[in-house]
């Protein structure tokens, strides 16, 4: 895993395919959060997906096609900011793996050094320490597996803790995966379901008002399970909480 070193406020926003197709509100929130901290944001129109689904499934030939498309789409020197730990991990690590015998490996390394998960970028690159506004809710924050080895989770905790009224509740077995794992969740549906069930139990154990994640991929899976089981605890991406807090200051009221 390459730790990104390229900083700056002129950035490329990579919305991720999941936000592009399902979770548009998350992309909108992340975009507005980046606007708030003073970023000049480019959204390359040609963007699609990071390539991770094929990479993790072991179809490196098809993964490389998509990675190369990304090398073109996100060419240049600007940092690439991604509201997902998993897609960031693909840019920062996975892409180099499937490209290791490709002539464009150096470009992949370049993209790795410029790719940031949103919260880690805010805290580690821009040095954001506090967050304005109020969000009077108990939040259970899921630690997405693909933020291992990065400072994303700690960054998100720092930002959320700074919000007035927000209380982070303890989540058991934080280091355990929710069972999504890309195609794993359909290749091994029973194992995935059992992992998801445990994760949901831990996330709602302390009766939070909101279940939050740094990654909509995890939430697509365990959220889908929650919906099926009629567990109605609201779910938000961290950027949506940051935006809600921001909006509370604009309204002059509190949430």
């Amino acid at each position: 895993m390459i730790t990104p070193s390229v900083n700056g406020t002129r950035i490329n926003f990579m919305a991720t395919c999941l936000c592009d197709s399902f979770y548009s509100d998350v992309a909108k929130a992340a975009y507005q959060v980046l606007e708030h901290v003073g970023c000049e944001i480019d959204f390359p129109e040609g963007q699609t997906c990071c390539g991770q689904p094929a990479h993790n499934a072991g179809d490196w030939k098809n993964a490389r096609k998509v990675v190369k498309h990304n090398l073109d789409t996100f060419a240049g020197d600007a940092p690439v900011i991604i509201p997902s730990g998993s897609c960031a991990a693909m840019n920062r690590h996975g892409a180099m793996l499937c490209m290791e015998e490709d002539s464009r490996l150096e470009e992949a390394k370049g993209l790795a050094s410029r790719s940031w998960e949103l919260c880690e970028f805010l805290v580690e690159s821009l040095g954001v320490e506090t967050w304005p506004g109020t969000f009077r809710k108990k939040v259970a924050l899921h630690r997405s597996c693909h933020t291992r080895g990065t400072k994303s989770y700690e960054s998100a905790v720092k930002l959320l803790s700074a919000i007035n009224g927000l209380e982070l509740v303890e989540v058991g077995e934080l280091d355990q995966c929710c069972g999504f794992g890309g195609t794993f969740c359909v290749s091994f549906p029973n194992v995935s379901k059992k992992m998801g069930q445990l994760k949901i139990q831990h996330l709602i154990e302390k009766i939070p008002d909101v279940v939050a994640s740094l990654d909509m991929a995890c939430m697509l899976h365990f959220g889908g399970m929650m919906d099926r089981q009629k567990i109605t605890t609201p779910r938000m991406h961290v950027s949506q909480i940051l935006l809600a807090a921001l909006e509370s200051t604009r309204k002059g009221g509190s949430v």
Binding site: F22, S24, C185, S187, G224
Partner: peptide
């Protein structure tokens, strides 16, 4: 794969292109 997905999970509403339009 879709069948395997739907056995235990709902799929969220598809909102393709919504962010781009916004």
């Amino acid at each position: 794969s879709a069948r395997s997905w739907q056995k235990t999970r709902d799929l969220p509403e598809f909102k393709g292109g919504d962010f781009r339009a916004w």
